[in-house]
């Protein structure tokens, strides 16, 4: 099995976000960055599938600045065989990112191309299915359960009120959701080995795209709430407020 995994470097989900002076992007100074949490599921799945097949290759791709090398090394330390950095400042238009990735992945001869469901910075949830469409490959998004046998993929994805069972053939594109697996932590040995693994750097240039960021703001503070009271005595007052003030009952 030859498997590609697409990785994005994103701010740590618990980090405090500071909006930069341009009022369009965040201030990255001092911010901790991590491998996008959903991409960890993709890395784990690639490793587990290769282990199960007993042979093959896993290759990580990340589009980003040189800083993304650190993120890529995390995946290499988890066990990915080699990696490619598509050097670019990125784009708010997911289709431009998808085009650059598709161009690179096209000739790779991959049986499977794995993505995270969503990048927790831009919340676009689009690059994976776009790459599939550009490459003419079948795609199942938000996969929470997966079986692959004899080139047949059966995947489950959560939908409102239930679970969809989706089938396709390899080669295919999948985007990985929570629940798919439990990502391993890089071992000390893995971290050492990662330093010697091949990390190719290829500059790419993205088109202008059609999505333009006009501004970035902090979310409106919710107006200060109040403690209605303590214990069961406060219940009638809460219900009264919900009816007459909030008008939600």
């Amino acid at each position: 099995m030859k498997i590609a995994v697409c990785l994005k470097r994103v701010p740590d989900t618990v980090a405090k976000i500071t909006i930069g002076p341009d009022r369009k992007s965040i201030d990255e100074a001092g911010l901790k960055f991590v491998l996008n949490p959903y991409d960890e599921f993709a890395v784990e799945e690639a490793l587990a599938l290769k282990e199960k097949a007993g042979a093959g290759e896993t290759v990580a791709y990340s589009l980003g600045t040189d800083a993304a090398q650190e993120t890529i090394r995390t995946a290499l330390a988890m066990g990915i065989d080699r990696a490619v950095l598509l050097q670019s400042a990125g784009s708010p238009d997911g289709l431009e990112v998808a085009k650059a990735m598709a161009a690179e992945l096209k000739a790779g001869g991959f049986d499977l191309i794995l993505f995270g469901k969503l990048a927790v910075d831009d919340y676009n949830q689009q690059v994976g299915p776009m790459v599939a469409e550009l490459l003419g490959l079948p795609c199942v998004s938000s996969v929470a359960h997966l079986t692959i046998a004899d080139g047949a993929v059966e995947a489950e994805r959560e939908v409102e009120g239930g679970v969809e069972v989706v089938a396709c053939r390899l080669p295919a594109v999948l985007t990985c959701d929570k629940g798919l697996n439990n990502p391993r932590l890089p071992s000390l040995k893995g971290i050492m080995a990662a330093k010697k693994k091949l990390l190719e750097v290829k500059p790419v240039s993205l088109g202008p795209g059609s999505i333009e960021v006009l501004g970035l703001e902090y979310p409106a503070e919710r107006k200060a709430g109040r403690i209605v009271g303590e214990g069961t005595d406060a219940v009638p007052e809460l219900v009264r407020l919900l009816r007459t003030e909030a008008k939600v009952l």
Binding site: G94, Y123, P129, E133, E160
Partner: peptide, 23 residues
Amino acid sequence: ATATGKDLAPRVAAKLGVGLASD
């Protein structure tokens, strides 16, 4: 922006070669 819409919209955008604003 439902399970179906989130799966469908990027496919449509890629087919048409246009950007997508999500959620």
